[in-house]
Amino acid sequence: MALNQNPYMPEMATVTRIIEETPNIKSFQVVFNDKEKMKAFKFQPGQVGQLSVFGVGESTFVINTPPTRMEYLQFSVMKAGEVTSALHNLYEGDQIGVRAPLGNYFPFDRMKGKNILFVGGGIGMAPLRTLILYMLDNREDYKDITIIYGARTPPDLCYKEDIKEWESRKDVNLILTVDAQFPGWEKRVGFVPTVLKEVAPKPDNTVAITCGPPIMIKFVLEGLAELKFPDDQIVTTLEKRMKCGIGLCGRCNIGHKYVCKDGPVFTLRELKELPDEA
């Protein structure tokens, strides 16, 4: 373990900034109280952490800042259950626990020299953000970067500051969409899988990385198959109910793979070899 001999022991950390991304998503910027540990902390894009609100519980979130930007670790949290609600009730300066990094990461080395297609929906943009920022920080290693990002309504789009920057860059092709017409929205309207088919990116020398709600992923995968993307060029990151985060407690398995330890990042080819329990 990177942090401690006891893998259940969280590192105490302070919430330094809270950003209201959407009406039900907040991002938390977090630094370890132990400055040495913060300095020594290493992780790879796509790895996750368990955030503790003591007395309430732990929940898993991807570290959505890249390892190239280490002033703080950022986690985005959609308010849904007990722990996420408790996180939403926090103030800047509050103490939380962090167990990180956990799990595997995006095969960013194998993506070098390739075109990259990101397809994200809603809070599913969080893991993609890590990799996008990482790639932008190493821009020369990658060819064309296309981002298709959709949400229910314009206020539901996360990372509005990033979006502004990506829109202004010439080396990023950003396509935003929302599910239905919305006052003042002049960009695309339509579900992410539909927009994917309209944009019709070419599969040649291209890796597609997708994350979003299960139903979106399902249709995006179908769309990518129609566009002739091969299974090993499609990467997704899964979410599961997790407790231990270290491959012991037994609930996040799909067949013999544990999403918390062997995942959360899988290629479509890997997923197809496992039982249909995603």
Binding site: G55, G57, R241, K243, C244, C249, G250, R251
Partner: peptide, 27 residues
């Protein structure tokens, strides 16, 4: 197993308890 937090006003604990894959709530 399951891991849950329990607390009173000024203290609490994180406990590990057996859980069963046969229960609906498990996953």
């Amino acid at each position: 197993f399951n891991i849950t937090d329990e607390k009173t006003k000024d203290k609490g604990e994180r406990i590990r308890t057996w859980d069963a894959c046969m229960f609906n709530h498990f996953t």
